[in-house]
Design a protein around this nucleic acid. Structure first.
Lengths: 331, 331
DNA sequence: ATGAAAGCGCTAACAG
DNA sequence: CTGTTAGCGCTTTCAT
């Protein structure tokens, strides 16, 4: 077993043909005789040949790479989006490359820059709130830019997601229609998670329209987690015993809220409302309200758009794909 | 704003120097005059220059890429490992590239092959149970191979993880020592998740040593989820009302089990035991037993080993890094 | 059906 | 401190 990475040239020598013929045979080009192809394949096999994509991509001027930039990994939502992208790319010969920003704008800029240096065929980024400098860099890359998850803003190119402001509004409307009157809010670091902030803003706007307001709220300064949601809910319940509904920044926080109401024996009079429609939320022993975000689908649609950049011309399927999350568990 | 990707050569022309000088200036080489450097930097800025890593890597024969292959994305454990790797790589100039196998051995082989074609500087793969063919390919790549999560088997090169057989054994011992006697088991598709199978085997071995056995069990045929754990637990509780402890394939399943015992008002007499030490498990309204897997740490250690391949020679820190998960919630 | 030449954009290795 | 030459491993294009 030689530990030396073999090249096309070596396979060519072993098969007694030229580099070009090996290249063609390995890629399954039609104009190679069966006999030659077989000899080449055997030689490649014997030498444990693995093509060098750096050389391939540099030479052919295409990488078939799809850069994907997400803010976090600790919220299951983004891994699910990534899984959707991976899945949607399958069979296309394209490869996703992921970068994580930790909700940090400066880090996001650098990561995008790094990714662009690999000359991806398309790039998928989370949200519409990149600073001008980043937008300029993305525009300049001259590849399809696919912004996902959020719809509230001005897209650079393609946009796949949902309006978080509207999601917040609709949830507020549904809860009010169901008779809820005294609302609380529990959230995590909203300055980082902009989309959660948009949902809260939409929710609050509708409250105001109905001459209502959040009676009490608790904001954490870390990222969302079940434990944080539980902790803050206990605090809020102590401070405001008369709430009949609490809106959360997302389902992780809401699950914690559900646990808190269980511990405080308040499950009968307080309705917990979250966002995402996590698998966990549906399995809880108490019903909670949530909006199902089609995150896997968003990933798959984004992948399809990215594939468009791999083949011939763009399928010119709409530049904007809007989803409307379904609300469950309110009544 | 020109949409054309500029090259070193163009920056060189704009700055009135040679390609080489630009290359040096951009990389911050020490032997470039301040004046020249400034002119180059300005020219690069003005042209929106972004280096081409394909060319860089092909020329310098190093990619500083770390290939990472994990089985799944829907179990939060792997995103956490990936976050640990990303984190551990930060500041090293190395970039992680992720691939997902869906617990499919054939897919894993192809993904590894694809990743190797990018000539990564190191590769991190999950588990020790790759088929011979895959092992041969990995050996042949002549880069550090870092196998993570599992310790039960023969590593190719570096190994970072824990013994799942022992984790199962230790949990069984702890539960028996705490007085539990009538055990049930609830798991997901064990033929896919080999590590869960190893934990179960270790657990059962200790039961046998104590002349005990699983009184009843339920195995799902899909991947683990909270809902599946809940569903199977309800079934098991109906079939075997006299259990005093149920061991689960992991904490997701165990959380579902906890919900089921809550719904069945059996939280007082049945102890739920899982694996991983998820954040969720700690926040549940009922105590459950679990072993904390140091998954983030595993990612960070793996990243450190991968970095070793980027710099000079290997720090030769032990080839095997073994963790022993801490058990909580038993008593 | 096969091969030869040129070049993708960069850096290594030498000059000077 | 700066420039020149060669070449990384492959594909493209043009011959034959």
């Amino acid at each position: 077993m030689d530990t030396h990475k073999s090249t096309l040239e070596e396979v060519a020598a072993a098969a007694g043909v030229s580099k070009m013929t090996v290249s063609r045979a390995l890629r399954g080009a039609p104009d190679v005789s069966r006999a030659t192809r077989d000899r080449v394949l055997q030689a490649a096999e014997r030498l444990n040949y693995i093509g060098n994509r750096l050389a391939l991509s540099l030479s052919s001027q295409r990488t078939d790479l799809v850069a994907v930039v997400v803010p976090s990994m600790s919220n299951i939502v983004f891994p699910e989006v990534m899984a959707g992208i991976s899945n949607g790319l399958e069979g296309s010969g394209m490869q996703a490359v992921f970068g994580i920003t930790d909700y940090d704008v400066a880090k996001e800029h650098n990561i995008i820059r790094d990714m662009l240096s690999w000359r991806p065929s398309a790039i998928i980024v989370t949200g519409l709130d990149q600073p001008d400098e980043t937008v300029r860099m993305l525009r300049n890359a001259a590849i399809p830019v696919i912004q996902i998850m959020d719809l509230d803003g001005t897209p650079i190119d393609f946009n796949v997601g949902l309006s978080h402001e509207r999601a917040g509004e609709e949830m507020a409307r549904a809860l009010i229609a169901a008779g809820r009157k005294r609302f609380g809010y529990v959230g995590s670091a909203l300055d980082r998670d902009l989309r959660a902030g948009k949902r809260r803003a939409g929710f609050e706007r509708v409250l105001h329209e109905h001459r209502l307001a959040f009676v009490g709220q608790r904001l954490g300064d870390t990222l969302s987690s079940v434990g944080l949601g539980k902790y803050l809910t206990h605090q809020l319940l102590d401070a405001e015993p008369k709430l009949d509904c609490i809106y959360y920044s997302n389902d992780d926080m809401a699950a914690g809220g559900a646990f808190a109401t269980m511990e405080a024996s308040r499950t009968d009079d307080i309705l917990i409302a979250g966002f995402n429609g996590l698998e966990l939320a549906a399995a809880l022993p108490v019903r909670i309200a949530t909006s199902r975000s089609p995150r896997r689908m968003i990933g798959e649609v984004a992948a399809r758009l990215a594939r468009g950049s791999g083949t011939t011309d763009n399928p010119s399927s709409g530049k904007i794909t809007a989803f409307v999350p379904e609300i469950t568990g309110v009544a």
